[in-house]
Nucleic acid binder design. Structure first.
Length: 327
DNA sequence: ACGTTCCATAGTAGCAGGCG
DNA sequence: CGCCTGCTACTATGGAACGT
């Protein structure tokens, strides 16, 4: 029975998280530091504009270190092409250090920036280059990047102001910046979850879904760039269930209350926490609907399973087949 | 009816590009 | 360089949708 396989993932993940509990203090520290820096991060983010098609990301390390300056990643089709260092003074700097090789290889971009002014002509030149460049990476070395592209496309979709493909679903951000949520477990090999400490896997797409109040749930989505027999939806789901299990344990841990706020909620954590775990995959003949409405228990809390099968053209979502009730 | 969160729409401000 | 114009990221506001 497939439900048993899913429950095994939960039990395995919980047991790993109990055997290795270094993550508890570590993640509590993350939440404390990030919360402390949050206003600064937000103020820097609001002090400059995001230039389409470049998008701004913030990682955990940078969020923790963001006291006087904050480093954002600037990504193009999901790939980092530059770093923006925001300063209290508003004099932000742009640098391509360490990224030049791939920028040239993947995007034919030979512009090298060494901490130039964000408002200066060199930075403008750089933005302009990507603004006018058409399409993602050059095809000959695009292997491995497809998932990044789709992830970025989905985040853009879920952060749109209106007319989004998946209504009432919004990506979780930190200080109004895209934030890849880390975990201490690796679940990318669907056959076995393992504990990986600081080198754990990240949640592909982390969102809130619902219309407000107790009717809004965190949704842990695992994105795949293919939907084929060898890597079917249920394997992606197992991955999202493992990460959802971590989020459940995190929210029930010492630092849980602060994470709840960082994730975008004002109130207390509900007595019964409901988390959604979903696979996000291109629609194909392998679409699986068998786990629709399936609910898995973690003590008093639950994980509800969902699917999101989509059709995409030119980096835009054109069709959606989902169990999320808002679509 | 209230509280919460997301959505739609209109208005604002800052950038890019064109032109002299 | 400075001015104008169109475009777009962002903000503000009011409303919708849900459970309690």
């Amino acid at each position: 029975m497939i439900q048993r396989e899913f429950n095994d993932v939960i039990n395995k993940t919980r047991s790993l998280l109990n055997q290795n509990d270094e993550w508890r203090n570590r993640y509590e520290g993350y939440a404390l530091k990030i919360t402390k820096n949050l206003d600064f991060i937000k103020s820097v983010r609001e002090s400059f504009r995001q230039w389409h098609p470049l998008t701004v990301y913030l990682n955990t390390t940078s969020a923790q270190n963001a006291k006087k300056t904050v480093v954002f990643d600037l990504r193009y089709y999901g790939q980092t092409v530059a770093r923006l260092t925001g300063h209290e003074s508003g004099k932000h700097k742009l640098s391509t250090k360490g990224l030049e090789k791939n920028n040239l290889r993947d995007f034919d971009c030979d512009i090298q920036l060494n901490g130039v002014d964000w408002v200066g002509s060199e930075a403008a030149e750089f933005r302009k280059y990507f603004k006018h460049r058409k399409g993602p990476r050059k095809a000959e070395n695009n292997s491995g990047n497809e998932e990044h592209r789709l992830e970025s496309m989905w985040l853009t979709e879920l952060l749109k102001k209106g007319g989004k493909a998946l209504p009432h679903t919004k990506a979780v951000e930190i200080g109004k910046v895209r934030f890849p949520m880390p975990t201490p477990v690796s679940a990318s090999n669907h056959k076995s979850v393992k504990y990986s400490g600081v080198h754990g896997g990240g949640i592909d797409i982390f969102a809130r879904t619902g219309t407000g109040g107790v009717n809004t749930y965190l949704c842990i989505m695992e994105l795949k760039d293919e939907n084929v027999k060898s890597e079917p939806p249920k394997d992606a789901l197992k991955q999202s269930i493992a990460y959802a299990t971590f989020i459940r344990e995190l929210l029930r841990s010492e630092g849980g209350r602060q994470w709840w706020t960082l994730f975008g909620f004002n109130g207390e954590i509900p007595k019964q926490l409901i988390l959604y775990a979903a696979c996000v995959m291109p629609s194909s003949s392998c679409n699986d609907y068998s786990f629709k409405e399936m609910t898995l228990d973690i003590d008093e809390d639950v994980i509800k399973l969902h699917y999101i099968y989509f059709v995409e053209k030119d980096n835009m979502i054109t069709e959606i087949d989902t169990s999320l009730k808002w679509a």
